[in-house]
């Protein structure tokens, strides 16, 4: 099969970006979207042109490094997968595919399709941890935790930090990402001693970093490759309320 790629090209964070068109042929449906991009990039190099820069690493949907806006959808149109898990068989022969980076104030473009998501790390620095040191911890079975709580904490902890929730939100809100972390700790006894500071500090940094506010459109939940539930935003809101009252 063949496709026409319409790709966002931008030299660096300061330069203006433009769309460029690239026809790609001899594609097999078994190729992943990135393998198709690899093939295109190899051709660009041999033609003396600069290949398209995009972020990726594990290519199996777990590291959270990849993330493209494809035909207006984060990670493409299939549910529950990341960009690296997309295969060419889900596109039509001859189709034009529009490829863009995440677009959000808090995620400035570094080059082409690569964005800077370090704002996520700074939110985590504000409270995404339990303040313990290495060593001197009690036996792992000292505190029983109900299975149902742990399972829900695990649902939240599945977040891969890709940023699709932000990119898809019209307000560029990071509530799903932050909600997932706050919720994970809120569900576990380990998270209780610092629950108040955690939610207040993480939310404060989230605002400072330029993420927008949440208006409950639910777009994030639909686009999240790990299907993180809006429940976690609700739990964070309760934690936030509690923290402000106490």
């Amino acid at each position: 099969m063949r496709v026409m790629l319409k790709v966002w090209r931008q030299n660096n964070s300061k330069s203006q970006g433009v769309f460029e068109m690239y026809p790609v042929k001899n594609i097999s449906g078994d190729m992943s979207f990135f393998e198709m991009m690899d093939m295109l990039n190899d051709r660009l190099v041999l033609d003396g042109k600069t290949p398209i820069a995009f972020d990726h690493d594990c290519r199996e949907g777990i590291c959270g490094t990849c993330g493209l806006f494809i035909n207006g959808r984060t990670h493409g149109s299939l549910r529950g997968i990341t960009t690296c898990q997309l295969h060419m068989r889900s596109f039509k022969d001859g189709e034009t595919i529009v490829v863009e980076p995440w677009r959000a104030k808090a995620f400035p473009v570094i080059k082409d399709l690569i964005v800077d998501r370090s704002s996520f790390d700074r939110i985590m620095e504000a409270g995404g941890y339990v303040s313990i040191k290495t060593g001197g911890t009690p036996d792992a079975n000292a505190i029983p935790i109900p299975k149902i709580n742990v399972d829900e904490a695990m649902d939240a902890a599945s977040c891969i930090g890709c940023g699709a929730c932000v990119a898809t939100c019209k307000n560029s809100s990071a509530m799903l990402f932050v909600g997932a972390k706050v919720s994970q700790y809120a569900l576990l006894p380990q998270g209780q001693p610092e629950a108040r500071e955690r939610v207040l500090n993480m939310v404060a940094v989230m605002d400072e970093e330029g993420f927008g506010s949440c208006t409950n459109t639910g777009a994030c939940e639909v686009e999240c490759p790990k299907e993180i539930s809006l429940e976690h935003i609700a739990r964070m809101n309760r934690e936030f309320l509690k923290a402000n009252i106490s």
């Binding site: 941890y129 339990v130 313990i132 290495t134 060593g135 911890t137 009690p138 036996d139 792992a140 079975n141 029983p144 935790i145 109900p146 299975k147 742990v150 399972d151 904490a153 695990m154 902890a157 994970q184 700790y185 576990l188 380990q190 998270g191």
Partner: peptide, 22 residues
Amino acid sequence: NNIIDQCVAQGIPFAREYGGLL
């Protein structure tokens, strides 16, 4: 064994049984 203790204290949601133990 220390590693598991450390990781649980960090809040890592390891799989548990219905009784709440790992």
